[in-house]
Amino acid sequence: MTTTPIKFYQVGSFAVGNRLLSEEDRSIQSDPNRTNALTSGHRACQGCGEALGARYALDAAMRACNDQVIAVNATGCLEVFSTPYPESSWRIPWLHSLFGNAPAVATGVAAAMKAKGRTDVRVVGQGGDGATVDIGFGALSGMFERNDDVLYICYDNEAYMNTGVQRSGATPPAARTATTQAVGSAPGNVFGQGKNLPRIAMAHEIPYVATASVADLRDLEAKVTKAMSFRGARYIHVLVPCPLGWGSASCDTIKIARLATQSGLFPVFEAESGEVTSSTPIRKKVDVEEYLKLQLRYAHLFSPTRNDAVINHLQEMADKNIRRYNLLNQSSES
């Protein structure tokens, strides 16, 4: 999706704010009085993409509905680092029940609100990729299928990070995790189908599905805002690099997310009622290698010897996304 193009500005629509923009053209995060749904003092690792993504998304959700948001969180890093007794980093009503039931719990909250006639209060369910594509998959699908009035946000860091970086259904091929070690004849994760949850969500024909990343705040905010304009089940899949699990420098979190989108490995698009309605064109195309190189989980692709076969395979995946979502050569930014 493209945000409103803002002409004549050196930083156009990519930076967080810019004093030259009118207030309404600035991102929500640029507001010194932003709500900080997730505030300081949380225990996420240095440079945690999930902490960033969660604040981005929930602040946007709050803005969209006059702060009337209740969040339901699955077990995982986000839950653990935000609410270890005796301190909580949340500034919104927030509920954690279990690892695999966040979508259903969110449905329950939404049902309660509906029963009480408080339809002004909106419910956001959220969890990591494990909670979403694996253990909570059934509950999520049920929530989708019933079209419950819940916005579910998956913070995808491509593994079970909270338990120490084990493979999930969203772990990409070749990536090293604690349960897909870089040993043997096919080191790292298998080349399988993976679980492409955005597409699975689309198959439910729910009103709104989108992907986003922490590298494009404007896009993320616009999508959350748009999602909040619908009633019914909505799904946003946000790529959130994890320095710990990916073996990347803490300062590179956003950069890596950007390379994921600019290589085509992580396509950014949105869909309504099962149909892709737009995709965010790649601005500065890079080879997947640029992305892989910065992460130790792919180190085995480069040393001791370079594994061209696997790198090419990953490049093919990226190229396929580029074709499928038409990520290049769109008549852009018009």
């Binding site: 259903a104 719990v105 449905t107 909250v109 939404a110 009480k116």
Partner: peptide, 13 residues
């Protein structure tokens, strides 16, 4: 599992 989870959410709300 979802039934009890929905009940949890509803009750907490």
């Amino acid at each position: 599992f979802a039934a009890m989870s929905v009940a949890i959410g509803a009750s907490a709300a």
